[in-house]
Amino acid sequence: MNVVSQYWLKTTTYNTAVGIYATLPFIMAPALLFVNAPYGRFAGKFGIDCSLSGKWGWFIMEFVSPVMFATSVIIARPTWTPFQIILTSAWLIHYINRSIIYPLRATSMAPLHVLAFVCSIAFNMFNGYTNGMWVARHSQSIYEYKFWAGMSLWVMGLVSNIYHDTLLFKLRKKTMTGKKRYAIPHGGLFEYVSCPNYFSETMEWMGFAIATAYSVPAYIFVAATVSNLFPRAIRTHEWYKNEFKNYPKSRKAVIPYIY
Results as ranks from 00 to 15, higher is better:
1 M>D: 15
3 V>M: 12
4 V>A: 11
11 T>W: 12
18 V>D: 11
26 F>S: 10
26 F>N: 06
26 F>A: 13
33 L>D: 11
34 F>L: 04
36 N>C: 00
37 A>N: 00
42 F>E: 11
43 A>M: 02
43 A>I: 01
46 F>W: 12
49 D>T: 04
54 G>N: 07
57 G>I: 05
63 F>Y: 13
65 S>N: 08
70 A>P: 07
71 T>C: 08
72 S>I: 09
72 S>E: 12
77 R>T: 10
78 P>T: 03
89 S>R: 03
90 A>Y: 14
90 A>N: 14
94 H>S: 09
96 I>T: 15
96 I>Y: 14
102 Y>Q: 05
102 Y>I: 02
104 L>T: 06
105 R>E: 13
107 T>H: 07
108 S>E: 13
113 H>D: 09
116 A>L: 08
120 S>V: 06
121 I>F: 07
121 I>V: 13
125 M>H: 03
126 F>Y: 14
130 T>S: 01
131 N>K: 00
134 W>R: 01
134 W>A: 03
138 H>I: 02
140 Q>T: 07
148 W>F: 08
156 M>I: 10
157 G>K: 01
158 L>K: 00
159 V>I: 15
161 N>V: 03
161 N>E: 12
165 D>N: 04
166 T>G: 10
170 K>F: 08
176 M>T: 11
178 G>W: 06
189 L>G: 09
189 L>H: 07
191 E>P: 12
193 V>H: 09
194 S>Q: 01
195 C>F: 05
202 T>D: 13
203 M>C: 11
203 M>K: 00
205 W>G: 07
218 A>Q: 07
225 T>P: 02
226 V>N: 00
227 S>M: 01
229 L>M: 09
230 F>G: 04
237 H>W: 05
245 K>F: 00
247 Y>E: 05
249 K>H: 10
250 S>R: 03
251 R>C: 07
253 A>G: 03
254 V>H: 00
255 I>A: 00
259 Y>S: 06
